[in-house]
Design a protein around this nucleic acid. Sequence first.
DNA 1: TGTACATCAGTGAACGCGCGTTCACTGATGTAC
DNA 2: TGTACATCAGTGAACGCGCGTTCACTGATGTAC
Lengths: 221, 221
Amino acid sequence: MRKSSRRRHGNLRRVVLDASLALIAAEGVSALSMREVARKAGVTHAAPYHHFRDRAAILAALAEEGFGLLAAGMRSALNAIPAPDVQQRFEACGVAYFEFALRHPAYFRVMGRPELSEPAEHPGVDAAGAAVLQIVVECVRDLRSAKQAASTIEPMVLVLTGWSSAHGLATLWVDGPLSRGLLGGDPHVMARSVAHTLGDLIAASGILERLATVGAPLLKK
Amino acid sequence: MRKSSRRRHGNLRRVVLDASLALIAAEGVSALSMREVARKAGVTHAAPYHHFRDRAAILAALAEEGFGLLAAGMRSALNAIPAPDVQQRFEACGVAYFEFALRHPAYFRVMGRPELSEPAEHPGVDAAGAAVLQIVVECVRDLRSAKQAASTIEPMVLVLTGWSSAHGLATLWVDGPLSRGLLGGDPHVMARSVAHTLGDLIAASGILERLATVGAPLLKK
DNA sequence: TGTACATCAGTGAACGCGCGTTCACTGATGTAC
DNA sequence: TGTACATCAGTGAACGCGCGTTCACTGATGTAC
């Protein structure tokens, strides 16, 4: 490639974003620096300044893009399931959320640390995040008409569910949007509500009697 | 304070750890540098090297300490509830986990990013983390004998529960111990298991019929 | 179609800064006698 | 109790490095005529 052909890149904004994603996926958000990303993009370290004011601007662009992709993924997962199967749609919603994180760890990392994108200066980020939450709300709303029986649940899966809920709520508070008033609640009440919900669900589902027989071997360990 | 009185600190290891916690709580893990922490500890920038080999050694010490505190908090919460109340104990377990994160955000941040403490060089960290998981497993094991009826659950709380579970599982995979083989499973199976568990529990609990009447106003919005 | 010109994305040198790490040092403390 | 000495935690100077940011510049591209 001749030196001259690198002028008037035309595409640098996208190239910088992709290079940032690669960097963040490989070494974490803290590895993202203007100079390193320029290096990875094959461009002088001052070039990205023509497209992004600073590091936070790159992160904000990635966060907004990521929320858009996540929302699209969840909507597409939901569309693949007939409207009457509300429980499967609810489950698909959670699965899609996780699958997104698995497929796009760099986006997920940036989205999970809203303080890095200086939300006050980039309102689009919060708006894109709110759109995702809206999907979850719709899923739960749809659940109101469902009536299905519980199947067998393995104890270690119950452990994982409980752990995920607790860890997720904690993360959403400590490093996420909950502490910034998203659902506008007291964190202690939230914690007790979620824990109590899981407990109630477990108790009312009749799963406990089955655990005694079906799941016993796994918990022996 | 005379200059001479600062010699033979005697306490610097603890002071450095506390200064690190303050730094991490205020500005995140990436704000922790050897020089900044020394400055905050009121000591020359080379002094901490007599107690910690490098930055990772400080983080490893914090992570191990944090897991110990979390385990102690969970055990103490469990001990406050009579053994027969297994569902309340299960709920208290999740609440204690969250309360820990709320009270000790700096510890929680470090614990949630195991790669920073170079676990290969600091095996005590993983051991301390495993001890916490063991407590959750015990809680679920105890649940096998419980039989209680579900009370009323608010729809937004159900949203929060689902969101927390999905976000928690995703975080535990992307930036946490799950991807390092802790429960030794395929992530896609894990995601489907957790989602299906929640769905099953919701369906089997009979909560759905009640949502139609009790929770309707909240979902209208 | 061909030419002259304006634009502005990318260049490369330069600045000051905080960082990690090393090193010979020094002096407060604890111990042996 | 008093003295001499060994220890080693903390000092402060020094090194090289990558970073963010600025700046005058330059030359490929698009447009007007």
